[in-house]
Write a protein that binds this DNA or RNA. Structure first.
Lengths: 379, 379
DNA sequence: CTGTTAGCGCGTTCAG
DNA sequence: CTGAACGCGCTAACAG
């Protein structure tokens, strides 16, 4: 960076020749492999072999040690861009999550990051908002960045990307959704078992008239949970009349509110509401509260996922704990294994756990309660 | 259509060798710039110039259009590894967050990702757990990956990394902590104003005996909030006796519990507890509940941050809303501006908002309550 | 405005 | 086991 006539005149004032800072930046340290090689007194190629775990045994131990020492002394760090260009492997994973600020995802992400780091991979995080267009753009961009694989945490069943990603030949693992026809591994919670636990729990309490606020049927979890609930109830000899089953469009409190209002307006009696997700349950609780219907005295409510703080909301929520962190870990593990080994497609279903809290209890004795009927049947 | 990896020889013929699938993986698409150039009938360099926004005006519009068309037709995507190697810019940002699964961070991360994406950058996320060793390793590794800059979301005041990062010449922005002596930009909430609002709120309700559960003094937020509270109380003519001020080691519910117990055991009277963070407040609420001390009837409690669900815990928490998403956005914006422009260090302090909920109320009339004294003074 | 040339830093053939 | 040479795909510099 030659500075004009800088000798003598030490004008630190606002120079009109500001250095372009971007040009001064270098990736990683300034030390390159050839510096290490020189320092160690060996050829570049030898240094490369010594530093690379995979080829380290092709070099004399003593030479390797010398190279190590030199690298250490100089603070050498491999230049990933060069390595990637040469090897076609970036050791980066693209992680597509609808919205990291939705509470289901952060623990998963943490699990992903932890495992990837253990294996020398890094995670490139992007937000999709479930927007197919955007997803497509992101996958494209991440592939251009050279990611070695994808983790797709998306709930939607229809997912054109899956065929693409597979076609493009990049190992992919889906998270929080069950198996698909595409040749990609998946990690999902045992939604069926969770719903079976809930059904058994409610039945044991004595509930017979059960309502259902179902998650979106275009999501894998929505379908699996609804199916699981239906099957479990059937085994218990229970059924849900059509008027007491409302499907939602999204997993949100607002949709829970909307659905719960419809249940109340149906005029049908019920003593429990099973929902497909904690947020839906929170919405249902809001509606019960505004309608002065006691929970669990008059109506019990269950959620799914056991999001943070569900043990602190009022009433605390009976729900099914999903091992979010572990799901993230497993997804990353599956991907890494696939990456540096044989290609194997696995479908992992992780166990869940019923967590009983305040929002469920015995149903009111027949004839003493109004069984969830709305106080004000207007609107 | 995978190309045989035959070095040198330009055998475009389809190989019958069953390729190792892992080896067949290529970053981005299989189309290279030279394919686009050939398709468009121009030289590689021209195609490069046409496709690169920064140099696009150095090429004839008609030629550029031709190149665009060819690129579109072939589905060309630039190879970032090659570009990075050549330009020394990766258009990736390293984001260091203690633990993404702590509820303060996800909205920030979303803000970061959104802004970065708008500007063509990608985010590499790592978890530090506030571990200095680990941070150092991660910074090193991310620099080797060629990141153009860092966003450091760490609360700790002492941060050796800051000098390093600056020294190494990579633009850096700190998030959720106030300015430092290092030449890095920062984005932080207006902790002082938030505490002033809380102090004024409590004073207006009539509180005089106020206790304090302070955040860790080795965190920037801990210090700023404590200082802000003290100053505000002083202006209001109030003071906190030493026995009613407990400092915590971390921002956690457990530490809130510990601190609240100490307050109760002090024997001093108080009608309100100001805490440095919502989690500490939740811990305090737990202790009040277990001690059968009504909140807010006997003791009011305040938090800080307004984490998700704070409007649903019991009692709902009076706290200070921090614009987490916006903080993330601003941090990313600052960094991007610094990256492709003049070096400018800015210190942003974002406004906060007092949110009054159920956990604060008028203090009990003097003599009628026990003013926060523990019911059981044992243990 | 476009073509030519060179090299970013590394891993991987080949020889020896 | 080590040294030499080459090229991964792209962009910056320099002609023309």
């Amino acid at each position: 960076m030659p500075r004009p006539r800088s000798d003598g005149a030490d004008t630190t004032g606002s120079s009109e020749m500001p250095q372009n800072p971007a040009r001064a930046i270098r990736p990683g340290s300034d030390i390159r492999l050839r510096d290490v090689a020189r320092e160690a007194g060996v050829h570049i190629a030898t240094a490369s072999r010594a530093l690379n775990p995979r080829t380290r045994d092709r070099v004399h131990p003593r030479t390797a040690a010398k190279v190590d020492a030199a690298a250490e002394r100089l603070g050498y760090e491999v230049n990933f861009a060069a390595r990637t260009l040469r090897t076609q492997r970036s050791e980066m994973i693209g992680v597509l999550i609808p919205d990291i600020s939705r509470p289901l995802y952060p623990p998963m992400m943490r699990g992903i990051v932890d495992v990837l780091e253990e294996h020398g991979y890094s995670a490139l995080l992007s937000a999709t908002d479930e927007d197919e267009q955007r997803e497509r753009r992101l996958v494209s961009s991440l592939r251009a960045r050279g990611v070695d694989g994808f983790i797709l945490a998306t709930a939607h069943v229809r997912h054109p990307l899956l065929e693409d990603a597979a076609t493009l030949g990049v190992p992919t693992v889906t998270l929080n959704r069950t198996a698909t026809d595409a040749p990609v591994s998946s990690v999902a919670p045992d939604n069926e078992a969770g719903m079976a636990d809930i059904a058994a729990h409610l039945a044991a309490l004595g509930h017979v008239h059960i309502a259902h606020i179902a998650g979106p049927s275009d999501t894998s979890t929505g379908r699996a949970r609804t199916a699981g609930l239906m099957r479990a109830l059937e085994r218990l000899g229970l059924t849900i009349p059509a008027e007491l089953s409302v499907e939602t469009e999204t997993y949100s409190v607002a949709e829970g509110v909307r659905a719960a209002r419809r249940l109340l307006m149906s005029g049908q009696q019920f003593t429990a509401i099973v929902t497909g997700n904690d947020l839906l349950a929170l919405g249902a609780l809001d509606v019960l509260r505004e309608s002065r219907i006691g929970c669990p005295e008059q109506v019990s409510v269950t959620g799914f996922n056991d999001l943070p703080m569900m043990d602190r909301v009022s009433p605390t929520l009976t729900t099914v704990r999903v091992p979010q962190y572990e799901m993230g870990r497993q997804a990353a593990r599956l991907l890494v294994e696939q990456l540096d080994g044989e290609i194997m497609v696995h479908h992992l279903v992780l166990p869940v756990e019923l967590v009983v809290r305040e929002s469920t209890g015995r149903p009111p004795a027949p004839g003493t309660g109004r069984l969830g009927r709305p106080i004000a049947a207007t609107s």
